[in-house]
Design a protein around this nucleic acid. Structure first.
Lengths: 194, 194
DNA sequence: ACGAGACTAGACAGGTCTGTCTGCTATCGT
DNA sequence: ACGATAGCAGACAGACCTGTCTAGTCTCGT
């Protein structure tokens, strides 16, 4: 009962702890309001370790957002695997979003939030746009698979709904907006496949 | 040709110049990234004047947001006066939003942006919520006047569309999302008044 | 056993931020 | 004419933030 398998019981690396702490703090309180000292304190990591692995705060922010991007992709795709019917899969995006916005810690889209407090033209904008493009692409594929006559237009409409549901979830602190968005999406899907 | 009427040609008060400078800078670059020094420099105002009239940066931010709130109300209501038919008035909200998101300087909802970069529980959240409640109330009245059977639900749906169009306008830098939102709103209105 | 690499603790430098304080000037009402 | 008010210019204090550096510890592969 000493140390079991080294890879599972060992304390996570400084990089992983740093990323976990940055994720929690940056998402919950914003990037500018959270200083490096708070991140390393929560991570239990020396400041030199942060700068030797990431080089700068901006790079840490970038890694945080890329982690969010990856997590979002896997969670969304995993959530959609519950459904077989293409229409259900499309609407399932809003089901997943409803679950997410119902979570107490939900604070809106991390990419939009980050871009709202950082000057444009930087790495944040790039990751943000990549995430946005991925979302639109996912909706396009789902719309096409569901038999939409004009999947591109339907995808654009669904993006509007998704964004609105995300904002509503943050500001109103419930998932009502996401459920509304799902209902509207149902209507749009019905008329788009007539 | 010396000084005409004192109230019109005179240089605006320090307070007004401060508010104008804060509005431009805070909205364009964010609240945290813009320091007091930049604001007073653009306003052409001494630092002591800022602190004697507003007392703190947070209060200046609050005044900035309240100015935005007032401006938004007047602009929206003025924009709706072009329409007579209740349905056109409801959809007119999205027309106004489309014009706004087409403007080069558009950077999204100032209230959401501000709340994204400030810790909750402060004055920003209050003004933000007031603005949001006003929007919902406006949609409710417009929905009722347009003959919606369930104006509260329609208002909630329209809020989702409005938020989504605002986010889309900021991230995609065009007014496509607003026009999409208007089309969807047209559909929703049609089915809500059947 | 031992050397390399990863990590820790914390002092330190340089910059920036908010907010205060001291003088000085101009304008306006009475 | 003159006092009150508003405003300007800039130095200054104190806090905070990013990023660097030194020095010591721990762990692991060989």
């Amino acid at each position: 009962m000493s140390a079991a398998s080294p890879s599972t019981t060992r304390k996570p690396s400084a990089r992983d702890r740093l990323l976990a702490a940055a994720d929690e703090l940056f998402y919950a309180e914003g990037i500018h309001t959270v200083g490096i000292d708070r991140v390393i304190e929560r991570a239990g990591v020396a400041k030199a370790s942060l700068y030797s692995t990431f080089g700068s705060k901006e790079e840490l922010v970038r890694a945080y957002l890329e982690g969010r991007h990856a997590l979002r992709r896997t969670r969304l795709l995993a959530g959609l695997e519950r459904y077989d019917d293409p229409r259900d899969r499309l609407l399932g995006v809003f089901e997943v979003l409803a679950e997410l916005t119902g979570t107490p810690g939900f604070r809106g889209c991390p990419f939009y939030n980050a871009s709202a407090e950082s000057t444009p033209g930087g790495a944040i904008e790039l990751v943000s746009n990549a995430n946005r493009a991925w979302t639109r692409g996912l909706f396009f594929e789902l719309a096409r698979d569901a038999g939409a006559k004009d999947p591109a237009t339907l995808a654009d409409q669904l993006v509007v709904l998704y964004d609105g549901a995300s904002v509503g979830g943050r500001m109103d602190k419930d998932s009502k907006a996401a459920l509304m968005a799902r209902d509207i999406a149902t209507m749009l899907l019905a008329t788009a496949t007539l």
